[in-house]
Design a protein around this nucleic acid. Structure first.
Lengths: 341, 341
DNA sequence: TTGTAGGCGTTATCAT
DNA sequence: ATGATAACGCCTACAA
């Protein structure tokens, strides 16, 4: 049987209340008592019992705050689905969710929304912009006892307790590796990225480029355009690129704008001549794969990202299990028509 | 706040004990009282609180039994890793694991092992042989209140509460779809299956064949050999096949024996001429992918199978959440060198 | 600074 | 057949 607070209390000849005060850092304990208690707790190998904790938490509900830059981005639909599924599971343990979303990349807005939720939550799952002010805010929250878990995008040098998301560099490497297999290592490639301002997009291109250089010297990147994650912009720029580089035989779509890119390819009558590899899987991408226009897409398990993030926050709050970084790197999945679902 | 047993008791003007007896089918309740309680429970939307349940369960520990036909099969290492990870998470809720493994496919042995664990467990995760006697045993357990969840292999017409595993047919389809992309739909294919006695192997071939026929008429299956999941046997038979069919340009390895198949290809000096697609990812397969001999492998997330199975059993025991079939079909993953990690 | 006591929701036991 | 009560482990008032 696992060690309980009661047993520690008995072993120290002291009351349960005091043990609780020490173990939960509530202060108001004599230093020597504190030390005694900590020692015996360690010695006996005390691990808090989540069931007991959850039961007691029913009165003062725990709330996990979540802030996503998701509005207008279809990719996040699945992330949110994962969050909702996890919410169902933890609901009956007296742990709730407070989800806020925002549109676009304004630092001020993100700071504002964090402050709005701050005093209602015990944990924050944050899809952060990579900015020092955000990093500072994370530190501030941490000091107030609210741990922060970054999701999808990370700020490496911040005080966040952990990060959950894919390895964008490997995502690009996977795209290139697959394209190498499909084209037998020979291709003139156009890349459609979202924006150079998002490091995830850049990392994908960088990984893609590495594999081209090192493994498939016959694969050459002839042009890179930006879509600004927008289909109209993607369409215009792809069209122009295809005019300028009539030798293109493959396209790598790094971010959103997939529909626009494919529209340009269709109009140019190049569907059969160009191998298209995309990123992520929204319903539109699914259709394009079914039509045979896109051959494959590299996904980052958005549902799992949302589910696991909430699950980890729950574990932290209820079981005092601190997330280990290594387990949270979501694998990049290759999806083709046959294994889409 | 959620509805509790106490509230139902108050609403019915009756004691908590009686409500518990009804809700947990312990008998010894007057029919009319029972009906009253059931009605109000439904009316109020009673959902048992897992934290309370878990806490009360600490006295009489729950045990989840697991029986795998895993000895000598490397694939199951990852399944067991997933089981162990889930075990850690549920350990502190007072739920334990009893894992037994066996080697080879003797029905009698499986029945024997089930009987051995029967009276120590409240739930069974079973990797079953597809036999009527096993199906009968599952029914027997179910009637005694021990629910059974099949893992990796299913017995469709049995009383198991649910199944977790991949869709083997789609696994084969995915292999064919990928091979179609890589070979541009033109290939003479040799298939190395394990044994026609395992339906999973047959389903993979069937799915593979479907895609060849329907989507890539230029892909022709020229021969099928058996490996008996054994590398030596695989080597011999592959060697013979490659002699007999010198026009082979691709191999699909359906089951174990991967190392043997590849050895034969290497010795025949055909590494550069034959595109090999395998199934599952054991360390040896990983090495062969790193060497560039195998181009891709179709995986079925063994870790997730183990983890989820235990998680579902736990949910069932503690939260009364009955697993829904749909959520448990593990997706087939395409792994190439770049996304293996 | 420390101790006590009651309650979170469920289950088991003992008495009625 | 039913009721009352005491656990399970933790937290939080309030009392000392």
């Amino acid at each position: 049987m696992a060690v309980t607070i009661k047993q520690i209390a008995q072993a120290c000849n002291i009351s349960r209340g005091t043990v609780d005060r020490v173990l939960n850092n509530r202060g108001k304990v004599k230093p020597e008592t504190e030390q005694l208690i900590r020692e015996t707790a360690n010695r006996l190998g005390y691990v808090p019992n989540p069931a007991g904790k959850a039961l007691a938490a029913q009165k003062k509900k725990y709330v996990i705050g979540i802030l996503l830059i998701s509005e207008g981005i279809r990719f996040y639909d699945e992330v949110i689905a994962g969050i909702e599924r996890a919410e169902q599971e933890i609901h009956s343990y007296g742990v709730g969710i407070l989800l806020k979303t925002m549109r676009g990349y304004q630092i001020e807005r993100q700071l504002e929304l964090i402050d709005e939720m701050k005093d209602q939550i015990q944990f924050l799952i944050l899809n952060p912009m990579n900015d020092e002010r955000i990093a500072n805010k994370i530190e501030e929250l941490t000091e107030e006892g609210i741990e922060v878990l970054t999701i999808n995008t990370d700020i490496e040098d911040s005080k966040r307790i952990s990060h959950i998301g894919c390895n964008y560099c490997k995502s690009g490497e996977t795209a290139a590796g697959l394209l190498g297999l499909v084209t037998n290592g020979v291709a003139k490639i156009g890349i459609a990225t979202g924006t150079p301002m998002l490091s995830g997009h850049n990392q994908r291109i960088s990984g893609f480029n590495t594999i081209c250089k090192d493994k498939y010297p016959g694969m050459e990147i002839v042009d890179i355009i930006e879509t600004n994650d927008d289909d109209i912009c993607a369409y215009e720029n792809t069209k122009e690129m295809l005019c300028k580089h009539t030798d293109i035989t493959a396209l790598y779509i790094v971010a959103a704008g997939t529909v626009g890119v494919c529209k340009a390819v269709k109009e140019a009558g190049l569907v059969d001549k160009i191998t298209i590899i995309a990123s992520d899987l929204i319903p539109e991408t699914r259709e394009l794969i079914e039509e045979g226009i896109i051959k494959a897409t590299i996904c980052q398990q958005p549902f799992t990202q949302g589910y696991k993030a909430v699950h980890m926050a729950f574990q932290y709050l209820i079981s005092n299990i601190t997330p280990t970084k290594e387990l949270n790197i979501i694998k990049n999945e290759i999806k083709i028509l046959e294994n889409m679902n």
